[in-house]
Design a protein around this nucleic acid. Structure first.
Lengths: 303, 303
DNA sequence: GAGCATGATCGATGGAACCGATTGAAACCT
DNA sequence: AGGTTTCAATCGGTTCCATCGATCATGCTC
């Protein structure tokens, strides 16, 4: 079978991305004439119409087949890149740019310890960071805008995960709260309390609800329409006596309490309540082995 | 990023397949010098050692990285082929070679009706047939040796499936059997009977056991170490009074009984006992839409 | 040690990819 | 309506590289 040239596929993808011959050509670092001729050659070779010719108005219009081929061209180019990338990584592992996504309930407690450790262990690693909710990180991973995630399981998405460490949930109480007399506090004892959690979208909220056996999204927020947007504000709300909350061990260990008048108690229940911190990457990523090599360093920084 | 050329990747894959420079070159329709130079250029471009040079004795020896890259090169080439194939199919759907796998409990009852219908509807389709157990068909599909399967669900494997028609199980009894007095016969009434099934490996056995609520692989065989290898022999064993069995509607409709002294009764139970006949193909196959277009013709042939 | 098989190397060549300039056509502005 | 702008297709000329055929180097076999 006669294969299309990668260069021509690049032209096709670039045209789809930019919607303009000249700009697409510039993005490919060729002249417009080259790109135009390349696409015509591709159409001729595939014996298929990719663009609506003749009715040319302002923007190039793809045929349905053209759009389908754009998508397939993207995956083919990605597969070719994977070949080159695999070789590049074998040549020089854990160096170069790495786009890392971290969820907000891990980031502030991990990064201050992780970054220096990584700088020392892998000085040639150029780390780009993005903090966001799990859902958006996974979308970024899928779209190829992120290479590696640090998140909490269980999490939905098409990715390979590598568990790092269990992160237990503890109960945070306003000082003097009657539950503080018990340690550990059985989860069932929380049923009468006002449980404060992060606003919807944070996986910590889902995991905490699951740990308490609550149906999803039914935990109380402090007031209607007002919910905590970070663990730090959540702690302040608990300190203010608005309710109780669950805090991950990682955050407590990271000093989130400060001087706030909040007491911490262990929890007991059917299963140990908590979440699993993990690395995640695209399935069959060329850098999978590389990422797995990072796991010990991250695990140490998790404490 | 500088991409490797498809041609060089073909050289790499061909060398891995043939284990010999000369034969690999012949398979690529180039001279040995061209292939050799191409691989050296690839090594230089990727700045990676793919072959154990110097110690070259009888056969080329790949480095671990080389083997990894061979695998990635295969997927990259397959992705490029998918681009070309998508265009070819759009140009001329349902023509050319199609390698079809069918399980033995469908094949003899479907093909006599399906083949003429396909020949008439798609005269340019060149159909290659393979009859085998589900497991081996799925393996062939994965390996790219088959394009399309006709099988019975539920079935395990990495594939997209398109349900065609329900195929109900009926009870086959030796003439004069006491259960023949009832119609339908409740599944629970089978518990005292000797239930004959196909030998292990046939999905029909698994599905029939599931329909009867039996744990897997516990149905009786006629004698220890002797089990039926086809539905036709199974019918003869029932006719001989060795026990009872379940037959799919498709087989009965296909005339499997002939003149054998066997009575057929409907079955009743919690769920309608039966299996789902379906088409199956590789996920994201360029020909997915094409295959789905075959479904009506196959469904009609199923009766 | 002669003979053979295998893979690397070399010089020549044809074709493909590319560029810069130009043309042709449609849309926009006044 | 007419001039202007924008955009894609086309053309001629140049460069570069994959390929070929032939030769060389090496290690195994008899």
């Amino acid at each position: 079978m006669l294969l299309p040239s990668p260069q021509q596929l690049r032209y096709l993808v670039a045209l789809a991305d930019h919607g303009h011959f000249g700009r697409a050509a510039a993005a490919c670092a060729v002249t417009q004439s080259t790109l135009s001729a390349g696409l015509i050659a591709l159409e001729r070779q595939l014996a298929a119409g990719l663009l609506e010719r003749g009715t040319a108005v302002k923007r190039p219009v793809f045929t349905p087949l053209g759009l389908e081929l754009v998508a397939r061209a993207r995956t083919a180019l990605a597969a070719l890149e994977a070949v080159a990338e695999t070789a590049a990584i074998a040549r020089d592992p854990l160096s170069g740019p790495l786009r890392l996504g971290i969820i907000p309930t891990i980031s502030p407690f991990l990064l201050p310890r992780l970054m220096p450790a990584l700088r020392q262990a892998y000085p040639r690693l150029r780390l780009w960071l993005r903090e966001d909710l799990t859902e958006r990180l996974v979308a970024g991973l899928d779209a190829g805008k992120l290479d590696l995630l640090i998140l909490a399981l269980p999490a939905a998405g098409n990715m390979e995960t590598l568990p790092l460490a269990e992160d237990a949930f503890h109960l945070a109480l306003p000082r003097g709260h009657h539950l503080a007399a018990r340690d550990p506090v059985p989860i069932s004892a929380l049923s009468g309390e006002r449980l404060l959690l992060l606003e919807d979208g944070h996986c910590l909220r889902d995991h905490a609800e699951a740990a308490c056996g609550l149906p999803r999204n039914l935990a109380a927020t402090a007031e209607e329409g007002f919910s905590a947007t970070s663990l730090h504000t959540l702690v302040q709300m608990v300190a203010g006596g608005l309710g109780v909350t669950l805090l991950p061990q990682l955050a407590i260990h990271g000093g989130i309490l400060g001087d706030a008048p909040v007491d911490i108690r262990r929890l007991s229940g059917a299963a140990t309540p908590g979440r699993m911190l993990a690395l995640a990457w695209r399935p069959r990523s060329p850098r999978a082995a590389e990422f797995a090599g990072l796991a010990p360093t991250v695990a140490v920084a998790l404490g």
